[in-house]
């Protein structure tokens, strides 16, 4: 991937998080501590600020740098969780991955996120979006189909009962609200899928 393309992916990710920061915060206020939008925005703006130097690195190192920056700047549990996602992708991806390589790396990265959060799909978290995205990717779906699968998966967290994170303290009362981390994951998937489509 060319450095300019990686910069475009970072810009697309940071743009969508910035544009939806208030929505993410509102989702998190309903069943969490209400800082998700602000935290994610801070993290992705910090990544954007160093986008050019990250993009100059080979893809695996660039992704690791993005992950480390998120870990250091987000300031909530989302930092290590999204940071681990990018760091693990960087660790698993070859420098010039094809679709199979990307799917395999995402599968491993999902395992790493699950271990970091001591969670698994079905517990109303970002994993509930990542897992269907991996499946759509592995099944050869188009970028648009993958983005739609991510949105649908985020919607599907609404009737779930939270079993991890602050929302789990609410028990049954977490039902009826979308998980903020699932929503931000779907936003990132759509932004990256649409940006890759244009490359």
């Amino acid at each position: 991937m060319a450095a300019s393309d990686f910069s475009r992916l970072i810009a697309a990710a940071a743009d969508t998080i910035a544009a939806h920061a208030e929505e993410l915060t509102a989702l998190d206020q309903a069943i969490g501590d209400g800082d998700h939008g602000l935290n994610m925005k801070r993290g992705f703006e910090a990544v954007r600020a160093e986008a050019d130097s990250f993009a100059a690195k080979p893809l695996p190192e660039a992704l690791k740098a993005v992950g480390t920056k998120l870990v250091m700047t987000v300031g909530g549990a989302s930092g290590p969780l999204f940071g681990t996602l990018f760091m693990a992708l960087g660790k698993e991806l070859p420098p010039a991955p094809d679709r199979d390589g990307l799917a395999t790396a995402l599968d491993k990265a999902i395992e790493a996120v699950a271990a970091r959060g001591k969670s698994q799909p079905g517990q109303k978290t970002m994993l509930d979006v990542l897992q269907p995205v991996y499946e759509a990717l592995a099944q050869g779906k188009t970028a648009a189909e993958i983005a739609n699968a991510a949105d649908k998966a985020a919607e599907a967290t609404v009737p779930m009962k939270a079993l991890r994170g602050r929302a789990s303290f609410l028990g049954e009362r977490s039902i009826g609200h979308m998980d903020a981390g699932a929503r931000s994951t779907a936003l990132l998937v759509r932004a990256v899928a649409e940006a890759i489509e244009g490359i």
Partner: peptide, 10 residues
């Protein structure tokens, strides 16, 4: 969180 808010910083 290192930015004046509640949270934790790695």
């Amino acid at each position: 969180n290192g930015h004046g808010g509640l949270g934790t910083s790695v």
